[in-house]
Amino acid sequence: MSNVAVQLSHISKKYVVHHEKPTLVENIFKRTTSEAFWALRNINLTIHKGEKIGIIGPNGSGKTTLLKIIAGITAPTTGAANIYGRVVSLIELKAGFHPDLTGEENILLNGLLIGMSKDEIRNKITSIINFADIGSFIDAPFYTYSNGMALRLGFSIAVHAEPEILVLDENMAVGDEKFGQKSQKKMEQFFRQNKTIILVSHDLDFVKDSCTLTILMTGGKITKMGKSPAIVKYYRNTM
């Protein structure tokens, strides 16, 4: 069990889709119509430590829902999800910053939010600031930050959390070209290390080159799982 990072057994996820009615009167006197939508159906999956997993499939096949369950952002309707180790997701990088607080205050808050301890943040704060390349803005309020700076700071905090399991949705473009290369390098470093990486992407070549295993999802189920080149080739042929 010790080399397992993620263990999903019989996971299903139901969303209730409400159909909105235009007026209050209709809302009160007509029965609400809502239907169940199963985003995931009976998923069984074991991911071992250090594996790089790519998840591919058409839109609406449940990729992002699966990612959210692994990241602990939502819970499955049935089944059990066991996650061993610190998960950090590189989604919603700009969330969790307060516009009126300074960069430094925001680093503490955001770091605690994604599961770092106070001491850990204190030790890494210089490194976080340097990596994000925020410069003199660090003691300015967050609302003065440009879009790129916000993203860079979010990315920098997330990678400094030293996640054991890293969750990525799509390819993120972080800031300008210079920072793009820097973050690319950091990601490549993560891919070389013994970290578990789970990413959802439509960039099939990227998945083929960087992931050891690939999961193909359709209609909320895992259709195929195996070595990346074979799965990507299969997906391309059946598309």
Binding site: A71, G72, I73, V87, V88, S89, I91, E92, A95, G96, L112, L113, I114, G115
Partner: peptide
């Protein structure tokens, strides 16, 4: 809501 969608805290 954006905070809740970001991480499991």
């Amino acid at each position: 809501r954006s905070l809740l969608q970001k991480a499991n805290f």
